[in-house]
Design a protein around this nucleic acid. Sequence first.
DNA 1: TGCATTATTGATAATAATTATCATTTTTAT
DNA 2: ATAAAAATGATAATTATTATCAATAATGCA
Lengths: 154, 154
Amino acid sequence: MRRGNPWICKRMREEGMRMTQARAIILNIFAGNQGEHFSAQEIFFIAHRINPGIGFATVYRTLDLLAQMGIIQKLEFGDGLTRYEMTEAMENVPHHHHLVCTECGKVIDYTEFTDEEKELFAKVEKELSEKYKFKIKNHIIQFCGICNNCGERR
Amino acid sequence: MRRGNPWICKRMREEGMRMTQARAIILNIFAGNQGEHFSAQEIFFIAHRINPGIGFATVYRTLDLLAQMGIIQKLEFGDGLTRYEMTEAMENVPHHHHLVCTECGKVIDYTEFTDEEKELFAKVEKELSEKYKFKIKNHIIQFCGICNNCGERR
DNA sequence: TGCATTATTGATAATAATTATCATTTTTAT
DNA sequence: ATAAAAATGATAATTATTATCAATAATGCA
């Protein structure tokens, strides 16, 4: 049976890995909810509704795997949960960053100003990778502060 | 007894908090090692050498407190440990960002190109805080990739 | 299509970082 | 010096993540 994005299937095949039901389901969750950042728990519950056989360990393993492959990206907003979202390397994922409220944990995605950012970061990435012999795969940009709601509650 | 940075003492006093021995020791560790990012464990061991009475819970509590006050900043590099470093709001802390190896966890600080970054980010922060009514306190910028060592080992 | 090989899975136990509890100790203002 | 309240340390509790291992499912090939 062939499932999910053929490009990803191919890449897995090439490295001796298999495109399994669990992996396809988890990939679909990300593909169908671009711009959302899921914790392992959230992925588990959604996946579990689709196929109740899926276990927690598989979710963690799959998230690790997809992150290693550069398909999803690890994010940490400071609330103790690791979250994941599709990388910009994937189709249809717009360049965006995050605004994180350090009080309530709320996360806002923003896409403004990113053309300028994009240019600057492309330049910085190039120079840094040369200077430090570092192969840069992605970047994380977060603005931390207090959101509207939390700010008013004082 | 008066201890540590007078400005910080004052701020604590104003909010009904006290400048204690433990807090002064932990503050000194950060002040004396700018640009380093410490995990709670590391802070515990260093503080413990200075005053073996200090307990783990106090370290966690103090780190939380200093982060709330904007004196230190929480960082997560994806290895499961939360780390902290002095914020740029503090004296003598240069503007810098991080290069994180997703393979071995190595972190390189860099300070290049940050003048341009600084300008752009000042602008972005201003616009974002207006648009989203968000009071921005700091930002986190990380480039993730594979370091020299890990890249060669294949 | 059926079969053998082997990656993957699910259930569960183990690990490890962080948080909560509470009696005791320190700090501070008076 | 003392009373009031904040902070501490020891430890238990919580919780996210990782490791283990027998059972299962995916793949390549006949």
